[in-house]
Design a protein around this nucleic acid. Structure first.
Lengths: 141, 141
DNA sequence: TGACAAATGCAAATAAGTCGCATATACTAA
DNA sequence: TTAGTATATGCGACTTATTTGCATTTGTCA
């Protein structure tokens, strides 16, 4: 049993989710990928690693993860959701509309704005989604 | 022929889209609503106003509008798109997770960030999506 | 180890959106 | 004003993303 797997088991127990092979495998992809990933990609990964699961199960797993705060649901103006491990520090994405590459940028400005929104609008911000779309360095050549 | 209708016709001609009843009606809902609206709501409105159309047509209309820059596609972490008239000045939304109300806030901070992104990351931002979710004033009581 | 709740697999259902094709309609130019 | 043409629409089928019900399996914990 590797350290990696052990950590993931802990993570599941802490949110009172049973430790199952499918869940460990999904946690595994999320860690390996480190970018917002869609369900189809997760399923491909599981298949490639001979972990037999049903798509419905993967959807259920990801939903339980999101409910428990293990993952965050993200939308990049596609007709589907992507997911990212919630342990990543506050950050946003730069999505290249040409090659699809997704870069991260740190979030060191939204907090101020949320304070402003609270003062001016009396709206209590609980979460935000900040996404940038454009052309990445490589594709500008 | 009302002034309203005439304006909408102009808007369509300017982007080389033929002026049809369905398109005028969709432009009409978009103006009346003034908030990001989903396809189902547009269809409901058309039905309520006895404008006979097929859902496929509405999807096609909205897509052509978005391609021509008449509307903007927006995602509020639902499994679908919403659309908003592009003539609205740069702004973002505050979506209440309790009652669903959508408020606007003006955008007077993102421009700076895009300059920073360009300098630091050499990523050329072409558009952004900035959404806040939380609890609105009314629902905080 | 056995019981029980929770997780999974499978199949079917739903929702959002797309596509092909035949027909209808808006625009253009005569 | 009208005929011709390109475009838009309606309809039906289809795809993709996601959900749900239900029977079965599997973690967990005493």
């Amino acid at each position: 049993m590797t350290k990696g797997l052990h950590d993931c088991s802990e993570e599941l127990r802490q949110v009172e989710l049973k430790v199952t092979p499918a869940r460990l495998a999904v946690l595994d992809v999320l860690e390996k990928t480190n970018k917002p990933i869609d369900i189809a990609t997760i399923i491909d990964y599981l298949e490639a690693n001979d972990i037999k699961t049903d798509p419905a199960t993967v959807f259920r797993i990801i939903n339980s993860f999101t409910n428990k705060g293990i993952t965050k649901q993200i939308q990049l103006n596609e007709g589907k959701f992507r997911y990212e491990h919630a342990s990543k520090k506050d950050h946003h994405h730069l999505t290249c509309e040409n090659c699809g590459r997704i870069e991260d940028i740190s979030d060191n400005f939204i907090t101020d704005i949320e304070g402003k929104i609270k003062r001016n609008k009396k709206f209590l911000v609980k979460r935000h989604s900040v996404e940038f779309f454009g052309i990445c360095k490589q594709c500008q050549r």
